[in-house]
Structure formats: structure tokens, C-alpha cells
Simulated scan of single mutants.
Amino acid sequence: MPDIFVNYRTDDEDTTATLIERELSRRFGTDRVFRASKSIGIGQAFPRELLTAVRRSSVLLAVIGRHWSAARTADGRRALDDPEDWTRREIIEAFESGALVVPVLVGRTTRLDRHELPAELARLADCQYRRFDNRDAESGLRRLGDDLAEAVPRLAEAEGRITRELGGDESLRADGRTDGGTVQIRDYRHEQSGGVGAVGGDLGTYINHAGGPVHTGSGTQHNTIRNGGVEFHGDGSNYVERGTVTNDFGDRRDRGERRR
């Protein structure tokens, strides 16, 4: 069940909405943050899933940019005045369900004027907002997450649980998941002194402080002592001599391999 519903208008600040959702998912867990294009699965009933998620959420973040209120329907009407406009419907549903509604004003000049809003949305202008500037995105995301963790204790608990499961190592938070999700190589730290080890899943094999001949290819390795070094022959030869590494793989056509 989501705690945070990210509301936005397509072609206004959908990129910023995605950025906010991904950061909050990283921090609190992906299942706790709802964004329509991420959270509604293929073939599911779009209206039902949207309205159910809004009703079950504790917070709705209304991401609002410069073009939010100026958007038009296909027949030229202002979208906010259209009862079928999803951006409008989600916000009204959040108010009716008692969710905390937080306008996130994108950019330094975006404003909300209650006199420019339809009557059903006028109270949105009275809600305490947060301003988000892409030029200072990192601190803005951190502040927004801190505010949400304070406002919704379940989120603080979820964050603490994720941190404990990761052993307090923030570098392992690759995609907000602790259930076997993807870990980027650049985010993975493994401490081992010497030897050969495997880095989680499909990330590969590493060699730390190798003290002798090591072959990482698929061919047969033959070791031959030479003057000044060691020679390795396999499916292509590798040899080390006086600190220089040379790779000779020959022509793949000779081995019947297809070039990519």
C-alpha cells in the first residue's frame, strides 16, 4: 500500500515528478511511493488503480510547474476546469479522503493563486507548499524526504528498517529495494585482502592482489617461463613481461566466431 501519491500533469513537470518519486522510493521503498506510469501494471484498470491509490495514501504531492494551470483539453478548455481531468480528480480525491496535500512548486517563480483555481481546488492554495529548484535538486529532495518522514511516522520507520537491512551502508541503496533489486557496480563496496571473489549476482569476478599467473578467459592456460616474465597461451594469448601487459586475440574468423 503506498503512503505517498505523486500527482503531476504530463508535459508540465513529469520529469521532475519522476525524479522526486525515484528519490523517495530509494529512501522509503518503492512500494510506498505511487506514480502512475511506474505503479500501474500492464492491463490493469487505469481509473480504478489511480483512485484506489489516492484513497489509500497518506500524502499527495502535487507537482506544479509553470504550465500546470495553463494546460488545455482537446476542445480548448482549461484542463483544471474539466471534471474528467485526472490531475484535478486526484487532488480532489485526496482532499476528500483526508490525505495531507502538499503542493511542490517547481522553479523560483511558480505561484498558486486561489482566485485562478476552480472552486473545487481553491483550498490547494492554502496548503503549505515546498519549493523545488532543479538547480539545487539534491538539497530539495533531502528536505522533502525529511519533511515527509516527520509528517508520516510510518515512512520514518520504513527508512529505518531499510537502513538496518543494509547494515547502515547508504552506498547499497541502488534503487530503493532491499529484496534482491539491482545494485550498481559503482555503488558496491567489497573489502577483501587478496584472492579471487565474486561480486553479487551477475556483476562478475574480481581479483585482488594477485600473486601469480591468473587467466580469466575461456581457453586453456599454459604457463611457460621466459626471460623476464611469464607467458600464457589460451584462446588468444596474454603475457606479462617486466610490468607490460599485452593481449593478442588474433582474428575471430579463424575460430568461427561472429563479429558484433
Score class of each variant (00 low, 15 high):
Thr205Asp: 03
His215Ile: 05
Gly145Asn: 07
Tyr129Leu: 10
Glu116Trp: 10
Arg135Trp: 12
Glu150Gly: 15
Glu120His: 07
Asp146Pro: 04
Thr220Ser: 15
Arg135His: 09
Arg130Cys: 06
Arg189Met: 09
Ala125Cys: 04
Ser139Glu: 09
Val199His: 01
Gly168Gln: 06
Ser193His: 14
Ala210His: 10
Gly140His: 03
Ser218Leu: 14
Ser193Gln: 13
Gly197Trp: 07
Gly181Ala: 02
Gly219Lys: 08
Gly140Ala: 05
Asp113Lys: 09
Thr163Asp: 11
Gln221Pro: 09
Gly219Arg: 00
Asp175His: 10
Ala125Glu: 01
Glu170His: 10
Ala119Ser: 11
Ala210Asn: 11
Gly180Arg: 03
Leu121Arg: 01
Arg123Cys: 04
Gln128Ile: 13
Asp113Ser: 13
Gln221Gly: 06
Pro118Ala: 06
Asp113Asn: 12
Ser193Arg: 12
Asp169Arg: 12
Arg131Ile: 00
Pro153Arg: 03
Gly145Glu: 08
Asp169Val: 11
Ser218Ala: 12
Thr205Val: 15
His215Asp: 09
Leu148Gln: 01
Ala151Cys: 08
Asp113Glu: 14
Ser218Lys: 11
Asp179Met: 07
Asp169Asn: 13
Glu120Ala: 14
Ala158Trp: 01
Glu120Ile: 09
Glu157Pro: 07
Ser193Pro: 04
Gly197Asn: 10
Leu172Glu: 02
Gln221Ile: 11
Pro213Ile: 03
Ser171Trp: 05
Leu121Trp: 02
Gly145Cys: 04
Gly180Asn: 03
Val152Arg: 04
Arg143Ile: 08
Gln192Tyr: 10
Thr220Cys: 07
Glu191Pro: 01
Gly195Asp: 08
Leu124Gly: 00
Gly176Lys: 01
Ala156Lys: 10
Asn134Glu: 15
Val152Met: 02
Arg161Tyr: 02
Glu138Tyr: 10
Glu120Gln: 06
Asp126Met: 09
Arg154Thr: 12
Asp147Gln: 14
Arg142Cys: 10
Ala137Trp: 07
Asp136Gly: 08
Ile207Val: 15
Gln128Val: 14
Gly204Gln: 03
Thr220Asp: 12
Leu166Asp: 06
Arg164Phe: 02
Arg123Thr: 14
Gln192Glu: 15
Gly217Glu: 00
Tyr188Ser: 03
Ala174Lys: 00
Ala125Asn: 01
Val214Asp: 04
Ser139Val: 13
Gly160Ala: 13
Val183Leu: 12
